[in-house]
Each structure stands twice: as C-alpha cells, then as structure tokens.
Design a protein around this nucleic acid. Structure first.
Length: 219
DNA sequence: CCAGACGTTGTT
DNA sequence: GTCTGG
DNA sequence: CCAGACGTTGTT
DNA sequence: GTCTGG
C-alpha cells in the first residue's frame, strides 16, 4: 500500500517537472502522513475553450465521499485498490471525473520480519520526482465550508517490492500523466495505465525507524 | 417504499 | 483490541 | 503507515 | 449519490 511518502522537490521546480499552468507554494517534507494537506496535480477545464490546464493544489490525504455524513471516514480511505476503484461507491465518481497526480520523491513501506517491522524508502534510480495515481473529491460540510481530499491508488507489487510488501502505490510513467488527468479519457483506456511500475527503474533501501513517527522529518 | 451501507490494510 | 489523529 | 488514546464506578 | 436488502 502507501501510507507514507516524501516529496522534497521545491514548488518552483515542481511547476516545471509536472508541466503546471498554475500552482501553490508548499513546504517540502521527507515524511508525509495521512490526514495532512499535500501537494497534488489536477485538471481544470479551460474557461470558454477545450481541454484543460494542470494546476497544483493542497488537498487533505484521506478521501471523503461527497455523500458522507462523517468526514472522519477519510482517515481510513487513504488508499483505493486500482482493481476495484471504478466500481466502489466511495471512489467511482472520483474515478470517472476527478483523477489526480500525487507527486513524490519517495514512498515508504514496512517489511514484517521476526524482529518487528523494518521501514524501506523506495524511489526512482534516477532520483527524479515521480507521480502516484490519485483520486480527489469535494465534500461540503454542514456549515457550508468545503473540504477537498484525495486518495492514492494501489496495485500488485513488482519484483522489487514483493519481498517487502503485498501492495504498492500506482506510479504513472510520464506518458500516462495526461490521459490519467483528462476527465474526457475513455474509461476503457484507464486500467492499462494502472500497471505496476517497472522495478528496473526503482530502488529500495532500509531506513531508520525514526520515519515511524510522522513528526520526524530528519532521519 | 424506506433503511442502511458505502473502505483499505493486515491479521486471525 | 480498536479507533482517531498526524 | 505508525503513535497514542481509550473509561466508569467507587474507594483511598 | 447509488445500490442492496427488507
């Protein structure tokens, strides 16, 4: 799965890396936990024209369905299975029209062994920032305020991740970013985008258990 | 018709 | 054990 | 994902 | 919101 990740690319460079037309400033973080506001990339329709622009936004990690009465459901919907998200009531509306990229420079997985759990950091061998596949949603609070949330899609682990964990986040190759973001993409074209990323371009290293505490940013 | 559920992970 | 919060 | 909290009554 | 179950 993906319950923790890091994103250390500064705002200005992220605009270039992800081809953004508009964005927001944020603090880089090595240790990003669920329920916090995170930098995501989504599509915004061009007014009076065709197509869309890519915009950067800060959304809360943990998807709250628009019909939910209790927004704390988001604490448990930090991931969505890519195999079933198109059908699940909590995710299907977002899967159709509100897909997003979740930029990261690493994600963390915990490997169970006889001594306990060993955290691993996984990133791209070339150290580039990458994009995890996400879904976002809008929830209106009873008091009229708005809450924008997102979740990260998961898939089968590749050869690198299999010894560590039984799920991994969906990582989108660059050529998949546009069709994933485009609300007009034919739904039939989406499942092939969600395959496990090739392990040859990735590396995993054990890291300090200091990562366990979301308050720790240095380890 | 209304009421109630709607999710993921991992562990057992 | 199970839930909430970061 | 992990960390941290969790509750009532009655008695001392 | 939408589906399932009674």
């Amino acid at each position: 799965m993906c319950g923790r990740f890091g994103f250390t690319l500064p705002s200005k460079q992220a605009m270039h890396r992800f081809g953004l037309d508009e964005s927001v400033d944020y603090e880089t973080r090595k240790n990003i936990a669920p329920t916090t506001f995170c930098f995501v990339v989504l599509a915004r329709a061009i007014e009076g024209g065709d197509g869309f622009q890519r915009v950067g936004r800060l959304l809360k990690w943990g998807l709250v369905p628009s019909w939910s009465k209790d927004p704390t459901i988001g604490n448990r919907l930090i991931n969505a299975r890519s195999e079933t998200a198109a059908e699940k009531p909590s995710f299907r509306a977002a899967f159709k029209r509100r897909r997003c990229l979740v930029p990261a420079t690493a994600f963390y997985e915990w490997q169970k062994n006889p001594d306990g759990k060993q955290p691993f950091a996984i990133n791209l061998t070339d150290q580039e920032a990458f994009a995890m596949a996400g879904l976002w949603e809008h929830w209106s609070a009873p008091d009229g305020s708005d809450l924008f949330t997102f979740t990260i899609l998961t898939t089968e682990p590749n050869e690198l991740l299999a010894p560590i964990h039984n799920r991994m986040p969906v990582i989108l190759p660059e050529e998949s970013w546009a069709p994933w973001l485009d609300p007009a993409t034919d739904p039939k074209e989406l499942p092939p985008l969600l395959a496990s990323f090739p392990s040859k371009a990735m590396q995993a290293q054990p890291v300090s258990k200091a990562v366990n505490n979301p308050a720790n940013q240095d380890f």
